[in-house]
């Protein structure tokens, strides 16, 4: 039942809105991980980020996708928590660093062959500005060094639906998928490499000034 509702939600609501109102220009869709275990790492500007990534997958793969999302925000009310867990399939995390419990839940998901979606900027932050990545994702990769990490850059969604508003304005958005990277041996070098990769993807597209 939940699985059916979830498919219906994506087919009837998410996809029409994303295709008609937003319209994503996706570059290198072929580089997206088809199966888990894998981690997708993207910059974060809008609630639409997660949905945009999930909508690029065929319905039968929806159940593989597990966005890692802040508990204090999404678990505030019971309907919202139900929605976040059942419709989106989030792994709830508490903000403020990687604790053992969370790490274990993420590792367990990877071991089940799921694809984690991680936004290491932490919060949606200043719209359309890339802020420094938090290190949690590196600890996760360190725990499962074979996992491919797919960097992804999103642009335009922070203009369409930024933080602190529910008024959606139509804008085209860009999604750039990058080559996967593997564990580099140290937390610092991995984070530096990841941050550089995402910045490299950002440089591939035209970004209209938004000041």
């Amino acid at each position: 039942m939940i699985a059916f509702l979830r498919c219906a939600f994506f087919v009837l609501i998410v996809r029409p809105i994303l295709t008609v109102i937003l319209g994503a220009n996706v570059r290198r869709r072929d580089l997206l991980p088809r199966t888990g275990p894998a981690i997708i790492v993207a910059n974060h500007n809008s609630h639409l980020d997660t949905l945009t990534i999930m909508a690029m997958y065929p319905l039968r793969r929806l159940k593989l996708l597990r966005p890692v999302a802040a508990m204090d925000y999404f678990m505030r009310t019971r309907p919202m928590a139900w929605f976040a867990v059942n419709m989106i399939g989030i792994i709830p995390v508490s903000r403020g660093g990687m604790n053992r419990d969370l790490l274990q839940r993420c590792v367990a998901a990877l071991d089940k062959g799921e694809i984690l979606i991680v936004f290491p900027e932490g919060s949606r932050g200043e719209p359309e500005k890339l802020s420094l990545f938090k290190k949690g994702v590196a600890h996760l990769v360190k725990a499962r060094p074979g996992t491919p990490v797919h960097p992804l850059f999103l642009h335009g969604l922070g203009k369409a639906l930024p933080k602190d508003t529910w008024v959606l304005i139509p804008f085209n958005c860009d999604v750039v998928v990058g080559e996967p990277l593997l564990w580099t041996g140290s937390i610092e070098s991995f984070m530096a490499e990841l941050q550089a990769r995402v910045a490299g993807l950002a440089a591939q597209i035209h970004m209209a000034p938004w000041e």
Partner: peptide, 25 residues
């Protein structure tokens, strides 16, 4: 609509004008 959306996505926009665009649409 698609043409206007494409245009508005390409040009530089001021953040303060975000809601003005509703009227254009």
């Amino acid at each position: 609509f698609l043409a206007l959306k494409e245009y508005l996505s390409l040009i530089p926009t001021r953040r303060v004008d975000r809601r003005v665009l509703i009227w254009a649409y």
